[in-house]
Nucleic acid binder design. Sequence first.
DNA 1: AGCACGCCGACT
DNA 2: GTCGGCGTGCTC
Length: 668
Amino acid sequence: MEPADGGRWAGVVFNLPLDQMYTYRIPEGLPVLPGVRVRAELGRRTLMGFVLEVYTELPRELVEKDITPKDLLTQVDELPLFTPSQVELARWMSTMYYSNIGECLGAMIPGGKQERAVVLGGEEEAYQEKDVRLSEEQELGVRSICSSPRGMYYVYGMTGSGKTEVFLTAARKTVDEGRGVIYLVPEISLTRQVADSIRSRFGSSSAILHSRLTPSQRLGEWRRIVRGEARVVVGARSAVFAPVPDLGLIIVDEEHEGSYKSGSSPRYHARQIAMRRASAEGARLVMGSATPSVEAYHLMEEGKISRVSLSRRLAGGDEPEIRVVNLKGVEGCLSPDLITELKQTKDLGKQSILFLNRRGFSHFFHCRSCGYEAKCPRCSVGLTYHKSRNAMVCHYCGYRTPPMASCPECGSLDVGYAGFGTEHVEEEVRRLFPGWVIERLDTDSVKKKGSLEQIISRFRRGEIDVLLGTQMVAKGLNFPGVRLVGIVLADTGLHMPDFRSAERTFGLITQVSGRAGRYTPDGLVLVQTYNPSSSPIAQASTSRISDFYTQEIQTRRELGFPPFSRMIRLLVRSKNHHRAWSSARQIAVRLEHNRRNLQNQQPSLGETEILGPAEAPLGMVNGNFRVHILVTGAVFQAVHRMVGASIQGVVHPRGVYLEIDVDPVSLL
DNA sequence: AGCACGCCGACT
DNA sequence: GTCGGCGTGCTC
């Protein structure tokens, strides 16, 4: 097998920003194969690397450059950790996301990158494993999904309409065909419930990749998957890389969830990886949500994804009543309506949840008479008020304008910035309802270990009257004793300097109302807002779902935002303000240069646009100044090449870092 | 990313 | 005289 005469050499990549492969001599007797990990000396350091290739001859370039390879130190894995198709996927990722292969491979092995994840384990209602009989609609959906060995589907239906059952049945059929399944769930939320039902149905032929596994447990599960012992894999984002042989189905549950996008390099989107894998490996892709991303909805409308609609709410539970409350003229942050309903709920012996959006973005400028809000004339995103500079600033393009003294819509002088933080609301609730048990659940209060579980179980037992929570309460938690859900200020999301703000506001209200009526027949959602007529709020509150998407897609089309364009964001970060800006400007100049070049050489690639450099909405994080540039264009190739050419060979000064985000989900 | 080399300013 | 800033370049 092995040539007895000659030696062997390995092409190795490292998880470092080195876009190069390094050659090492394989010591006699080491059974090194492509796809194994090894330890090797690079410079003065000993690092772990990934073997991509094995040669039986010393590569010519090394002979020419007179380089004598060092010996590999040790072999970490006996058998390859990566299949050739995974290495190929890593190659594709590295070009797609401007990362290097070593970094991509590092992101693919679970635990290779520690992902922080709060798992609200065990908080969902226990899954009842009875004979589940599918409704006619569900049956039809499964049949359509399984009618062909491949294809893209979207199971679209409200909370409680039985999406999970469709997924599970499709998974069963796929396994019966002898093919493997990957079931992706968002980082927070229903992990536990789905994991339980998968385990109970597929037993030892399933693998659950959750954050609590130790590195060696993860590796063990990975090996079981490679060997084909585990045929159904459940996990968050990185589970999309599971080395399932003969992959037949990828499920992306709660497709709209932002946690599918990686927050660090390589900044991949699990949905995008899933699409690529499904098409490369001839598998089906099934996504699902009650509130699809606008991108996915548009693909459905275009017929590129087949829609599987689930219209009926199964297993009882009525639609909750959704009432919009105008905050105009209201003193403080709780309207009389909300106060009345809180009391009413307490009198009935039921519980309430009050939703607060993230603080920090409470500084939007609006008219208290008519609800008019300041927007950038060029980007159509909310302007952020900067008190220190006495200006309203667009965080997309850098546009700025002095704050208005009167409302341009109605002339009222009652204009100003508004918003309230978590502490403020808590204070007011405590003041209004002395003697009630009120608890707050947000990232601050969760830092103490165990307090999250504790608060949740106390709430479940009915020991808490009002739970004040942020996003984390919005998803995946269902409490039988809840009658009232109050969204304290639905506008907050609307004023985020982000083109997805309407989508997120709509999604939040819709998701929340899906929760409220689940157990209580008189479930009630109160949506407090300064803009009762704002489209996403009005449409979500009256369940005019398709109206929202139609309108939002039209707006995106007019403004040339995704899905009608692709976007790449370049973020320059430095402790030094001047350096951050000068590096950003330098990149912008190169971008402009390459934009012109591309325009002249390949006009068929269409127009591209460069927005910025502008201060990022979070202008300073951790003492780092943040400046970003947004590049958009209808043809992805054009945008991608332009950025590639513009960062090629650019060396930024000490302490300046560049982060590139392809198809960013958040622009903060 | 690290870690070396190397070149100019202010300290025991 | 040295310590230490940080720009530059390299890692098989």
